[in-house]
Amino acid sequence: MTRYVIRRFLGMIAVMFTVVTIVFVIVRVAPGDPAAVMLGPDATAADIATLREKLGLDRPLILQYLYFLGQLLRGDLGQSIFLNMPVLSALAERAEPTFFLTLFSILIASAIALPVGILAAYKRGSLFDQVATTLAMLAASIPSFWLGLIFIQVFAVRFSWFPVSGYGGPDASFIVRLSHLILPATTLGIVSSALITRFTRASMLDVLNDDYVRTARSKGMGEFQVVMKHAFKNALIPVLTVIGLTAALLVSGAVVTETVFSLPGVGNLVVSAVLRRDYPVIQGALLVIAALYVLINFVIDMLYLVVDPRVRY
């Protein structure tokens, strides 16, 4: 068991390291001089030289890389060019809406996907199954920004049930902020429920015909308990994986959804950084989000230990 944990941990570090390298490469492949691009056509040669120095672009690539690694190890993601603050602070400032948006989306997605997926598998081939499977495919085909706009049209503009956009100003109460999150979270929740539904259905189908499910029935147990306690618990492991990874990938959906709903979150920050070529911010956001993904992956591997007694090596 310790070996399992150590192996997974080392694996995580290795992937993390590769992620860092990829981010470094992405930002450096920019054709031309990033400093010149950032400052625009009106910049003087002196301005560009200053920025180059500030960004460390005047040093050899390998030194830049080592310096970059050193900075990261100290928890320093660099300085935003336009926001006049460290990238880490900029990200932290915008973390709250993104965190809650992701959390609520995943809750909504699971609340839809788990029951639907379980029931669809249980009634395989039935009308319910067919409708659920088709709807899941439809949900996976809808661009989240479009669904968001439709929700705004219907629920915010026509019925005025929810605010159209924003996060309620700097000193809005939690309830007000929450009301700003309902539409975006529902949008993202619906879109991401598709994958979880399909996965839940597939892993339930895998276990529903297993022998131990028949054993449970032969004990005289009710169908609900048979399905939820014996079948679903066995199907849960792959489903957990997908939910975890969906949560990590939702941050990507947040980029789009936050823009639609003008939520001042990390996604919004990234989009404006891209539009302004604020490379340190892009780089920092990429790093943090990919690291989150890798970390969630690791946590799921550890969850396996708790859920599945067979994982011990």
Partner: peptide, 19 residues
Amino acid sequence: RGREIAMIFQEPMTSLNPL
């Protein structure tokens, strides 16, 4: 089921819930 009539199966390796 279980109380009056009980059943055992061919596959002991898979008839018990692994979890």
